[in-house]
Design a protein around this nucleic acid. Structure first.
Lengths: 239, 239
DNA sequence: CGCATCCTGTTATCTGACAACTGACGTCCG
DNA sequence: CGGACGTCAGTTGTCAGATAACAGGATGCG
């Protein structure tokens, strides 16, 4: 048992203990924590207290509780980072221009890094996403998903987890806007070619060209967004 | 009242409702939410459910619950982002290198934007931060604060709220590391000159030079961090 | 052997209660 | 009259026990 006198509420102490158990590796990904009842006995607190602590750990992406099964240790910390960034931007009332600007920075630099670090698997994954997009899936939703997958794969090829989380969060904010751009059939062929250009630059291990290709692609999309916004297809409040 | 039938557990639904209330601005920073008992009545769920939801909102930095007082809406989302990234680093989902790399992107591009958009007030604020740093305050804490202030002022001069928020969150991660670099007296003069160079470039409205000056400064710091890390002054787990 | 069923263990939620804390109000004493 | 103190209502923190919902394996039957 811990020293009885510590700072914070009991819940906070339970959070600290469980977090330590997981980050120290005593419980690895996939392992199941003892049941809530067991944790109560071992920690000397009631079930609501344990549950509140577990809820915090779940929010932080350390565990995943499944009804009827148990509490499983996972590593969804990247998702947690993405979520909190998205919330921060939502709360801060991010201006559309600001979001687009930062996206441009992150994705272009990400593409440049990808050109330096992408493995063959990464290249295959990017190519696969492009193929999905070319095959023109049924609805707009599938198209947007494929588009999102392409950008995500490029970001992942940068091998920078922080950049992936940031890019992903920002993309989440732009999802509706980008969906609108795919709804119109304006210059679709050029946009598909843009994707191929990015892949070519990354495959050629040319950071400068990768940056430029991605920049050209995003700028084209931004111009399209601007047109749609003037036409009233996109509300100005959401980026 | 929302439709009673939605996906997810009741707790998830309560989380969604409360999050919406806050992000939509119905409750602003500083406001107090209704008491837990009141929320129970209005949402039609029991207190533990409400409390679990509130706990999630608290870990995400949206509210702050104080015993005997109530639940206050706050904006600690930047802290939440910093915390979750830190957790991701601890779990090995990201490397310290990733953090430094993203910082480099954001701050360099931010400096370039600042060169295009800084007002006279911004320039004065940056100069003021540099002056504070030159006057060599008493302790390391004050030095680090002044350093932080300098970088924050530059970011703010970019007039991009998203970039400011991200840069601030990332900086929070590096605070201890940067404090370590100021503890040693290695090439302090050069680093102070770096700051002046950035200000000069921004004042000259030269984006390329501003980017380069900031890049030079950050790279110098990174080299120092590398040296300290090899010497054991900085644990490798924290960036 | 295949399949439906039951059973066990788990989490999700509810109910009611009490403890601890905060802030403000009223009271008492100097 | 003024300030220190106690009291009190309202709030969050925690507990105990019970019930419902769920997943997966064991069991029994055809």
């Amino acid at each position: 048992m811990l020293a009885t006198i510590e700072s914070g509420s009991r819940t906070d102490r339970v959070i600290a203990v469980l977090t330590e158990l997981i980050t120290s590796g005593r419980f690895g990904s996939g392992d199941f924590l003892p049941s809530e009842a067991e944790l109560c006995k071992q920690l000397g607190v009631s079930r609501p207290t344990v549950r509140m602590a577990l809820r915090t750990l779940e929010t932080r992406g350390l565990v995943l509780t499944k009804q009827g099964v148990g509490v499983q240790v996972t590593d969804r910390t990247r998702q947690a980072v993405t979520d909190s960034i998205e919330l921060m931007l939502l709360r801060g009332g991010a201006a559309p221009r600001d979001v687009l600007e930062v996206r441009l920075m992150l994705e272009c630099q990400g593409a440049a890094l990808a050109a330096q670090r992408a493995t063959d698997d990464d290249l295959a994954a990017i190519a696969s996403a492009i193929a999905d997009l070319r095959n023109r899936p049924q609805g707009v939703t599938e198209t947007v998903d494929a588009d999102l997958r392409f950008h995500l794969r490029v970001a992942e090829a940068s091998k920078n987890a922080v950049l992936v989380a940031l890019a992903h969060a920002i993309r989440g904010l732009l999802r509706d806007t980008i969906a609108a751009t795919w709804r119109v059939d304006d210059r679709t062929e050029e946009r598909l070619q843009d994707h191929a250009d990015v892949l070519a630059a990354v495959s050629a291990r040319d950071p400068v060209m990768a940056d430029a290709a991605m920049r050209a692609h995003l700028c084209r999309t931004e111009r399209l967004i601007e047109v749609l916004r003037e036409g009233g297809a996109i509300p100005k409040t959401s980026p």
